[in-house]
Design a protein around this nucleic acid. Sequence first.
DNA 1: GGAATGCCGTACCGTACGTTACGGTTCGGC
DNA 2: GCCGAACCGTAACGTACGGTACGGCATTCC
Lengths: 211, 211
Amino acid sequence: MAAETEEPTARQQAVLDAVLSLMVEEGDKLTMTAVARRASCSKETLYKWFGDRDGLLAATVRWQAARVRAGRYDRPTLDIAALRDSLKGFAATWLTVISSPTSIALNRLAIGHAASRKSNLGGIVLENGRFAIGERLRPVLEAGREAGLLAFDDSETAFRSFFGLVGRDVQIRLLLGDILSLGRDEIERDAARATDQFLALYGRTESAPEA
Amino acid sequence: MAAETEEPTARQQAVLDAVLSLMVEEGDKLTMTAVARRASCSKETLYKWFGDRDGLLAATVRWQAARVRAGRYDRPTLDIAALRDSLKGFAATWLTVISSPTSIALNRLAIGHAASRKSNLGGIVLENGRFAIGERLRPVLEAGREAGLLAFDDSETAFRSFFGLVGRDVQIRLLLGDILSLGRDEIERDAARATDQFLALYGRTESAPEA
DNA sequence: GGAATGCCGTACCGTACGTTACGGTTCGGC
DNA sequence: GCCGAACCGTAACGTACGGTACGGCATTCC
C-alpha cells in the first residue's frame, strides 16, 4: 500500500533490506514467512505496509534503485582526457553494479516476474538501471560532440554501442548462473578497453564509421 | 529419465513442443497438468518419460537447442567481403534468435531456475547459446587472422567484443519485458552496423587498438 | 481370442505458501 | 494508571501444484 512514492520509514527500510539479503542468500526461498522471520516482524505488518507480496517486491526494487542512484557524476567536460575518464568511470560503475550479487538476484526476480503479466518489476528495474544510466550518460556524450571530440548522429545509438562494448556477455552469463568473478582490477581493465574501443569508433580524432 | 542423451521419440518431441508453446503463450502457467492437457497425454506418462518437472524442462531446453543448432555455417573464408558476410550472417542469426519469443521464454525460465541451485538449466542454455555460437565463430575469426584480415591476441576477447556490439542491450531489455520489436530490416541493419564496427576495431586495414 | 503393454483421463494425496485472524505485548498520550 | 494504536508471534485457512494411483481403452504379441 505504502512506498508507492513516499520514502519508506526507517523500520520499513530495514524490512526491505531483509528482503534483499534474503533474496541474495536464498535465491528463491523468498517467502513471506521467511521475510517476516528475517526482519523480525509479523506477516500482518508486511501486508499492512505493502499490500501483498508483489507490493513488497516492488517496494524492494524501488528501494534498491534509490540506493544505486545515489552515485552522482559531474557535469560535462571539455578535453579528451576528462571525457575518457568520465566514460571509463561510467563503465566501471556499470560493471560493478551488474556483477553485484544484489543486482543479479534482483534482475532474476524481475525477469521471472516479467514472464507473468502482473506488476511489472521488469519495467521498474529497466527504468532505474539501463534507462537511468542512459539518461545520465547522454549529456556527457552530447557535450563531447559539441566539443568536437565525438561524432555521431544519434546519441541513443552511440550509447547503446558503448553499453554493448562495456557489458558484452557479462550480464546474461551471470544471470544464467555462470561463475564469472569480476575483480576490481578486471573491471578497471574492461572499462578502459571498452572506453578505448568506443572512442576508436566514435571519436573525432580517429576513424569514425557512421552508425 | 529419458532424453538425457538419446533423441526423443516423435511423440516425445510433440510433448516438448507443447511445453515450448505453453511457455511462450502462458509464461508462468507452466504446470504439469497444463502440459499434459496441451499435449493430450497423461501426467503419468510425463513422469515416466522425463522423471520429474526439472527433467521435463531440461529435455525441453535440449530439444530447442538441438533445433537451433541446425543452422550450419560454411568453412572459413579468405577475402574481406566473405569475412564480412560471414560475420554479418552470424550477427543476424544471433539477433533473430535472442529476439524470438521462444528464446525469451526459455531464458526467463532458465534464469529463474538459476536462482535456486538444482538442475542447472542455465548451464544448458549457456552451453547451447552463448558458448555454442562462440565456438562456431572462433574458426572464422582465426581464419580471418591467418589471412591477415584481422588482428587480435585472443580470439575469445575479440568474440566477446563482437557479441557486445551485436547484442548491446537487446536481450536484457527483452527479458525484462521491454517491448522491442526487431523486424527483419532492423536486424539486417543492426547486423551490418555491428560488423562494420567490429571490423573497424579489429580489422587489419583500419586502425587496430589492442584489447 | 486372450493376455499383456502402453497410454489417456481423472481422482487423489501431501505440501508449500499467500493471506487472514487473533492473542499478547509495548508504548505514547491523557 | 488507563486506553488505544501499532506491532510481534503464531495459528489457521484456502488454494495451487508436484507427484502418485487407478480404471478404462487401444494396440500388439502369442
